[in-house]
Write a protein that binds this DNA or RNA. Structure first.
Length: 876
RNA sequence: GGAGUGUUAGCUCAGCUGGUUUAGAGCACCGCCUUGACAGGGCGGGGGUCGUUGGUUCGAAUCCAAUACACUCCACCA
């Protein structure tokens, strides 16, 4: 037999992946079958595979492979996302290395570089997914900047604009001074930072008085245009109507009153800087204040920064504090912890900034998406706890800032023909824009040269929210065969941190653009963390390299390792030891295969024990299959895997194979062999979604298969009814075998030494299973006795008592001790049951079935006590 | 500040609408086995008063309340 004694994944995996690809098993086209569709959460085009992707895509692959086996038309659409901020940042950095500054090149040149980058690195992550075994339909691979995908985005923008849902507004937005773009509210991460609260004294015009305010951002005083006090604050009564003088720039600013000011906080006086704080902006509008923006786009100070012009905001803070101190304006500094918004992508501190941006009105769009999840449950979340989070966000939804001051992405299709606020049109091409512009302006003489397209691009998520529709061409051709067949998709598997970014918006888009949910179920995975619960991250260096893991353990083992510890919705504490467990499991299955394949077959009659074992396994298999189906229906993927793990390792390998295994170098009867092969094949079917490579390898080695007989496209076992009595009888038998093994252990009796067993049968157990006991425990003869056997070791299963005569001295003291322990446990148990039964209220109120059950427990315990006491009296 | 989730063996978790043996699994741990598929294995074993305190009930890990701790999300007052 030329089967290696250890399973070697490296050799096997590429081979079968290529085989599957060559035979186009992953490719799907619409047909008469029911579709089962997953669209991949598109990873960043320039990204590399990390543990989160591994988990996510393993789960998707399990689902899609199972669906394929279930006979559904399984379609998993892969692709990548152009990730405008992240990719642009990388391209900018790379150009910088080459000595090129983005400022010095044209938009077109920059985009050429970006495309070059995309083509160079774009496929990497998808290739990595293949190593993991992902059975995506690679012929359908999409990119969010493919021509048709971009066209969909533009079409949707125009559509929403025409519906009046997209507007342009001068608003306070989140500004990333490094990426030099705005961000949506979702892209801002608030972090606690230790800082200082500075107390500054402003002079009052025409008075010796001072007013002290507290601020965390002293550099912004240069943009102050008012001081605000609470009108109910008696302390500042004298300041009403007066004016204050801003230190350093000596600007005279009004003292205004507004109840917005919290009297208890700081000094009860607030400086108002409408250009650099959302709330101050509202105050500014209310009180008609001037707005002074003191920053450049990179958050260095502009000319309003006076002698600090050109200095970075944080350096300027230090410098200004120093000057304020020297000039006596700084009266106190105290440590202060506050939450600072940072950019999700670049990690720099966000600057609130006023600028012209494009917004999408969300309130009405959100309504159908909210009820779809919470009322009609057309879209179901697993686990359900995320529905609350979703509700909260959707009910408090704010308008979406969709413009980004970047070049990499879909350029906003707005064309300006004049300087007025409304001197623009929105159209899908310059030509169309010209027609509209002529019409809107009434100026028939406009030419293409007079039109200037908006410089900004759209938020990446403004393309990915269409993903489940646009990958099937459903925006451009809403009635095409693909989209009508595959949409709505079946399951979405993603991490909870993009619930708002992506999931919620896809649901919104689904209802808005197709009037239908984008998917039936959303499975939210946990976040992959290390053993110390730290999030896996590049900067911490605690994230193992995905491909290294695969080459070390094999893809199947890594998949098993990831899934074993990932209870639905819980974070996954990743540890390489889990992959080792997966690898051990793979090896276990491999060796079971080696054993079976090594048998010679004869036409001898089937031993009774084998028949019993095979019958029992059939029942057990169906029992476990029932559990597995239940787990899958609840998306409890790791529990489904664990059920299969135990079925294969314990029931199949440890019990069944041991039962049917012929003696060393002896052949096996044909009937048993055929049955075992069929059982093995069914096991492989269950294993395949989890361990695709190993299962296919064994499947193909078991017998010669035509391409149409590959495991990947075979069929999931059908659930059959089973006889639970058979399983109970086996459990009893297993206990007896265990009892014998214990005695062998205690007395150091090797397995090869045949034992004699006597049984005092009070349970009415029939003798069918004796053959199995004889084989597995190496028992020569089983005698039925009516009296306890003297001079024998004993054990009990329920009230049956078993005796094994041993040679030499019997340690009676030990026997007595053992029986006493058992007796005291059983008595304690009986007592607790009897306490219940003695309680009249229990007997009267509890359902009859419960009372009956308790009575049976009591009877069983009593019978056992009787047995034990009798044994004891025999010994004493 | 608001909301949510969790707290069960050393670790990670099951335990669904309260009652199937005085709580289960996997891993880890401890013994003993160079047995002929597999030492990446076998057999056996120890280990939890189910966060705390009350309450409802004939009966609570399971329901309710309070409390402590942990985590997550949202909002944000300088």
């Amino acid at each position: 037999m030329d089967i290696p004694s250890k399973y070697e994944p490296q050799i096997v995996e590429d081979h079968w992946y290529n085989y599957w690809m060559d035979n186009k098993y992953f490719h799907s086209i619409p047909d008469s079958r029911k579709p089962y569709t997953i669209v991949i959460p598109p990873p960043n085009v320039t990204g590399i595979l990390h543990m989160g992707h591994m988990l996510n895509n393993t789960i998707q692959d399990v689902l899609i492979r199972r669906a394929r086996l279930l006979g559904l038309n399984a379609c998993w659409v892969p692709g990548t996302d152009h990730a405008s901020i992240a990719t642009e940042a990388k391209v900018v950095a790379r150009l910088k290395e080459q000595g090129i500054d983005k400022k010095d090149i044209s938009r077109e040149e920059f985009l050429d570089h970006a495309w070059e980058w995309t083509h160079e690195y774009g496929g990497v992550i998808l290739e990595q997914l293949k190593k993991l075994g992902c059975s995506c339909d690679w012929d359908r691979t999409k990119f969010t900047m493919d021509d048709d995908m971009s066209a969909s985005v533009i079409k949707v923008f125009i559509d929403l604009f025409d519906k009046g849902l997209i507007y342009r507004g001068y608003r306070m937005v989140n500004w990333d001074p490094q990426a030099k773009t705005t961000l949506s509210d979702e892209e801002v991460i608030y972090e606690e930072r230790k800082g200082e609260l500075y107390y500054l004294a402003y002079s009052i015009e025409g008075s010796e008085e001072k007013v002290t305010i507290a601020t965390t951002r002293p550099e912004t005083i240069l943009g102050d245009t008012a001081i605000c006090i609470n009108p109910n604050d008696d302390r500042f009564r004298g300041l009403k109507g007066k004016k204050a003088i801003v230190p350093i720039c000596n600007r005279v600013i009004p003292i205004i009153e507004d109840e917005y000011v919290t009297m208890e906080f700081g000094t009860g006086c607030l400086k108002v800087t409408p250009a650099h704080d959302e709330n101050d902006k509202l105050l500014g509008e209310k009180h008609k204040l001037e707005t002074i923006d003191i920053f450049n786009e990179d958050a260095s100070l502009n000319s309003f920064g006076l002698h600090y012009e050109g200095m970075d905001r944080f350096d300027a803070r230090k410098a200004i504090v120093k000057e304020l101190k020297e000039k006596g304006f700084l009266t106190k500094v105290e440590p202060y912890v506050n939450k600072v918004g940072t950019s999700e992508r670049t990690k720099v501190v966000i600057e609130p900034r006023l600028s012209d941006q494009w917004f999408l009105k969300m309130e009405n769009l959100a309504k159908p998406a909210l009820s779809a999840v919470l009322e009609t449950r057309e879209v179901k979340f697993y686990p359900r706890k995320f529905e609350n989070t979703y509700r909260h966000w959707m009910e408090n939804i704010r308008d979406w800032n969709i413009s980004r001051q970047l070049w990499w992405g879909q350029r906003i299709p707005a064309y300006y023909y004049g300087d007025g606020e409304n001197d623009f049109v929105v159209a899908d091409s310059l030509e169309a824009a010209l027609v509209k512009a002529k019409d809107k302006s009434g100026n028939a003489g406009l030419t293409a040269e007079d039109l200037k397209q908006d410089e900004d691009v759209l938020d990446t998520w403004f393309s990915s929210w269409l993903w489940p529709i646009s990958v099937f061409g459903g925006i451009m051709e809403p009635d095409n065969k693909e989209v009508t067949y595959y949409y709505p998709t079946s399951d979405l598997v993603t991490a909870p941190d993009i619930l708002f970014f992506w999931v919620a918006r896809m649901i919104i888009a689904g209802y808005e653009f197709r009037g239908e949910r984008p998917f039936d179920n959303v499975y939210l995975t946990g976040i992959v963390r290390d053993k110390e619960r730290r999030k896996m991250s590049k900067s911490l260096g605690n994230s193992p390299d995905a491909l290294d893991l695969i080459s070390k353990f094999g893809a199947d083992a890594v998949r098993v390792g990831l899934l074993l510890s990932s209870a639905a919705g819980n974070d996954l504490l990743f540890d390489e030891a889990l992959c080792q467990q997966g690898k051990n499991f793979a090896n276990k299955i491999w060796n079971a295969f080696r054993l079976v394949k090594g048998w010679e077959i004869t036409e001898t009659p089937q031993p009774e024990s084998s028949l019993k074992g095979i019958e029992w396994y059939a029942a057990r298999f169906n029992q476990v299959l029932t559990e597995i189906e239940d787990h899958f229906s609840k998306y409890r993927i790791s529990e489904a895997l664990m059920a299969i793990y135990k079925l294969v390792w314990d029931d199949f390998c440890s019990w069944l194979l041991e039962i049917v295994k012929p003696a060393y170098q002896q052949p096996i009867d044909k009937k048993s062999y055929t049955a075992i092969i069929a059982i093995f094949e069914n096991n492989l079917k269950l294993l395949h979604p989890f361990m695709p490579f190993l299962s296919e390898e064994i499947w193909q080695r078991i017998s010669d298969r035509k391409p149409s007989e590959a495991l990947v496209i075979s069929s999931w076992p059908e659930l059959e009814s089973f006889n639970a009595n058979q399983i109970r009888a086996f459990e009893f038998t297993a206990e007896v075998i265990s009892g014998i093994r214990n005695i062998r252990k205690e007395k150091n009796i090797p397995l090869r030494e045949t034992l004699e067993l006597s049984v005092l049968n009070k349970e009415g157990i029939n003798e069918d299973w004796d053959v199995v006991i004889k084989k597995l425990a190496n028992v020569g003869q089983i005698n039925i006795v009516t009296e306890a056997v003297d001079g024998a070791l004993s054990f009990r299963v329920r009230s049956n008592e078993y005796f094994i005569p041993v040679a030499g001295m019997l340690d009676i003291e030990a026997e007595i001790k053992k029986i006493r322990e058992e007796l005291s446990y059983t008595k304690g148990f009986l007592e607790s049951v009897n306490k219940k039964l003695a309680n009249e209220r229990f007997v009267n109120n509890a359902p009859e079935s419960v009372v009956t059950m308790e009575k049976k427990k009591a009877a069983d315990a009593e019978a056992k006590i009787l047995t034990l006491e009798k044994s004891l009296s025999n010994l004493e």
